[in-house]
């Protein structure tokens, strides 16, 4: 019994030692890992005079790493109309496509072309770049893989046209620091078309074609003041909003009519 206890305590001691070692190794790793990310303008407010903004993202990374920055909105379901030729001549809507687990907003910036930085397996793992996103997104309403890719490309074109999707290489600047690290910086235009919500900025440090570190920050876009009041009223108090819209229109119509009558009478 006593011997058994001793064996057990020995096992326990070994396990505790191993755990401590793993923990220590972990600490050593995290002390070495030092990728940071900060968005300078992380709370964008939308008032009547909002016409987009700019967001800069900067941080510190290990020297010798390549960087990729991804800015996305939460994934959602999106329904789109697809145009096609009817009778071989007329272009019109020929059906709908529903895109599942698709971000409404998706921007990727990288120090080099993403294909040179990462193999497709890594791109897919971290959802970096359009080809990776294409594999991730589910499209209902497309027939077969080639049709699916055609419509994904059209979808990206549509989103790029609305300034909601972007893939760009070479815009991130890096500066070597005396302590052997590097500072990275990017200034991006924040499009006014981006809807209110919370956006996630993820920075990836890449070495030897592998993502070795990640850091995350958020950008919040929010309507304020009268814009918020009107938007909230339109959805939460729709009947009153409808009456108000009609009332103002009737008032304006009569008002202008009266002004013109007075103007006309003077002559």
């Amino acid at each position: 019994m006593k011997t058994l206890f001793n064996v057990q305590s020995l096992k326990f001691a070994v396990a505790a030692l191993m755990a401590a070692f793993v923990l220590l190794a972990g600490f050593a790793g995290s002390a070495h890992a030092m990728l940071t990310a900060k968005a300078n303008h992380d709370h964008i407010t939308i008032d009547f005079f909002y016409h987009g903004s700019s967001v800069s993202i900067k941080g510190i990374a290990d020297a010798g790493t390549e960087l990729a920055i991804k800015v996305t909105s939460p994934e959602s379901h999106q329904t789109m109309k697809k145009k096609g030729k009817v009778g071989g001549v007329l272009w019109m809507n020929v059906g709908t496509l529903s895109f599942e687990q698709t971000p409404n907003f998706y921007e990727v910036f990288s120090t080099k072309n993403i294909d040179e930085m990462l193999p497709s397996s890594e791109q897919e793992k971290y959802l970096l770049g359009y080809p990776a996103l294409a594999k991730h997104v589910e499209i209902n309403g497309a027939d077969g893989e080639s049709d699916r890719m055609t419509w994904f490309k059209e979808f990206v074109k549509f989103k790029e046209d609305q300034h909601l999707y972007l893939s760009s290489a070479g815009k991130i600047t890096t500066t070597a620091l005396p302590d052997g690290h590097q500072e990275y910086f990017i200034l991006t235009d924040w499009p006014y078309q981006a809807a209110p919500g919370e956006y996630t900025v993820t920075v990836y440090a890449v070495k030897d074609h592998k993502v070795i570190e990640q850091a995350e920050t958020k950008v919040k876009v929010e309507q304020v003041g009268m814009v918020k009041t009107l938007a909230t009223m339109a959805s939460n108090n729709a009947a009153f909003y409808g009456f108000l819209s009609i009332g103002i229109a009737l008032g304006a119509g009569f008002g202008v009519g009266l002004i013109f009558r007075k103007g006309g009478g003077a002559h």
Binding site: F48, L230, A234, A238, A239, Y241, G242, S245, I246, A249
Partner: peptide
């Protein structure tokens, strides 16, 4: 206008 505002929430008052 009323139906659109009430059912679709798609009337933009400021644009109008």
């Amino acid at each position: 206008t009323f139906l659109q505002a009430y059912t679709n929430h798609s009337v933009d008052f400021l644009l109008a």
